[in-house]
């Protein structure tokens, strides 16, 4: 459904992506893990054209696009088929939760207001926030804001949703509610590409795990392959480091 080939991106002299290939099939939950600075977030941002890749190719629903030559119209059309959830939620501060969710329907897709409203309420219900529809972002907790952001991403019925470290900005006790919503989406068959530091989540929910380091995909496979018998030394090293950190201190 979505395939990226040889994606390259630099910021000045720094090469952040050095030829990344990634493939997402319909219904897949692909998680991208890796140390910070490995290019995971840049990869997602380039896929949705928030950054422009220097080189590479995208195949979306069988249509080929050159990433460095793609036009404005194609970008707009592709964005309408995808959803994006940011690390910092990025809710519209001047809109209520419901308005945040319906904005893309009413303004970008010209859906009639009452139709958008009922779709919006349904999406909010899915993330457990129908009762907070009229709240402004500043009246919501971080976890609630992120759930509204997820509702905003699913309401347009996208073919794939990109998650950029969706729980990294949250207080530890709020992480669970967001992961639960994502778990439910996965169970419903939503196609998702998730950059995350939540190893438990990556292991339990993902259908496919990609390990990135220094702008390259080092290793990928089913979660049990990556987490239980990683082939590459760098993958082992990274997972060991994470496990040491998450393990309780010895008595």
């Amino acid at each position: 459904m979505l395939e990226i080939k040889n994606m390259k991106k630099s910021f000045g002299d720094m090469e952040v992506l050095r030829g990344v290939d990634i493939k997402v099939e319909k219904g897949d939950v692909v998680t991208v893990i890796g140390p910070s600075g490995s290019g995971k977030t840049t990869l997602l941002r380039c896929i949705n054209f928030l950054e422009r890749a220097k080189e590479g190719e995208m195949i979306f629903d069988g249509v080929h696009y050159q990433l460095n030559a793609i036009g404005r119209k194609d970008i707009a059309a592709l964005r309408k088929k995808t959803g994006f959830v940011f690390q910092n939620y990025n809710l519209f501060r001047n809109k209520t939760a419901l308005q945040n969710v319906t904005e893309g329907l009413v303004v970008a897709r010209k859906v009639p207001k009452d139709e958008a409203r009922s779709a919006g309420l349904k999406a909010l219900e899915k993330v457990g926030l129908a009762n907070r529809a009229d709240a402004y972002p500043h009246q919501l907790s971080g976890g609630q804001q992120q759930r509204v952001a997820i509702a905003r991403a699913i309401v347009t019925e996208p073919e794939v949703i990109f998650f950029d470290e969706p729980t990294s900005a949250l207080d530890p006790e709020l992480v669970g509610e967001v992961l639960n919503v994502m778990r439910n989406l996965a169970a419903e068959g939503m196609t998702m590409l998730i950059v995350t530091h939540e190893m438990q989540f990556a292991r339990n929910v993902a259908s496919h795990v990609v390990f990135m380091d220094q702008g390259l995909v080092v290793e990928e496979g089913r979660p049990e392959e990556i987490f239980e018998s990683p082939r590459e030394a760098r993958t082992r090293q990274f997972l060991q480091f994470i496990m040491d950190r998450e393990a309780p201190a010895p008595q």
Binding site: L50, K80, F84, N90, G104, V107, A108, A149
Partner: peptide
């Protein structure tokens, strides 16, 4: 700037984002 990016991601164009999200704030 994240709100502008979010606007693009839900399918809005520059003028729509300016008029409905950025300028009111």
């Amino acid at each position: 700037v994240g709100q502008i990016e979010a606007g693009y991601c839900v399918g809005m164009n520059y003028l729509q984002i300016m008029g409905r999200i950025v300028l009111p704030q």
